[in-house]
């Protein structure tokens, strides 16, 4: 368990250092994710060593979003001022992104295989 935590937090720490040193505006967690994937691919970290902790974190990821979601109560005033434009555009655009992304993948993939 300690080793698993070490691996995860070491990757995250490297991400934090990279962001600090380079000043790039990119989430440290995604840099850590790509690093962990690279370490697994190169065999530095073995899959069996990390799978327990990784499965725990991933299967509960939705739960970790609850506090930032509850923080929405702080923004009611900002949202309220232009509620309908914000709500309708966000909702329709989300549906559009799902449709366009999914369809373009299916069409281009089919064309390539067909």
């Amino acid at each position: 368990m300690i080793l698993q935590c070490l691996i995860i937090f070491a990757c995250l720490a490297v991400g934090e250092v990279v962001v600090m040193l380079t000043g790039i505006k990119f989430p440290s967690s995604i840099i850590g994710m790509i690093l962990l994937c690279t370490l697994l691919k190169t065999g530095v970290v073995k899959y069996e060593k990390i799978k327990g902790m990784a499965n725990f974190l991933i299967s509960n990821m939705g739960f970790f979003f609850i506090p930032p979601g509850i923080a929405l109560m702080l923004y009611f005033d900002i949202i309220k001022a232009q509620f309908w434009p914000i709500f309708v555009s966000a909702l329709l655009s989300t549906i559009i992104v799902i449709a366009v992304t999914g369809w373009v993948y299916q069409l281009t993939n089919r064309k390539r295989n067909g």
Binding site: G32, M33, L36, C37, L40, Y47, N60
Partner: peptide, 20 residues
């Protein structure tokens, strides 16, 4: 609540495993 949110970043790092 911050102790729950704290695990968000490690969880995103962990996504490197299924990616691999």
């Amino acid at each position: 609540g911050k102790y729950i949110e704290f695990w968000l970043k490690p969880a995103i790092v962990a996504l490197g495993v299924p990616l691999y």
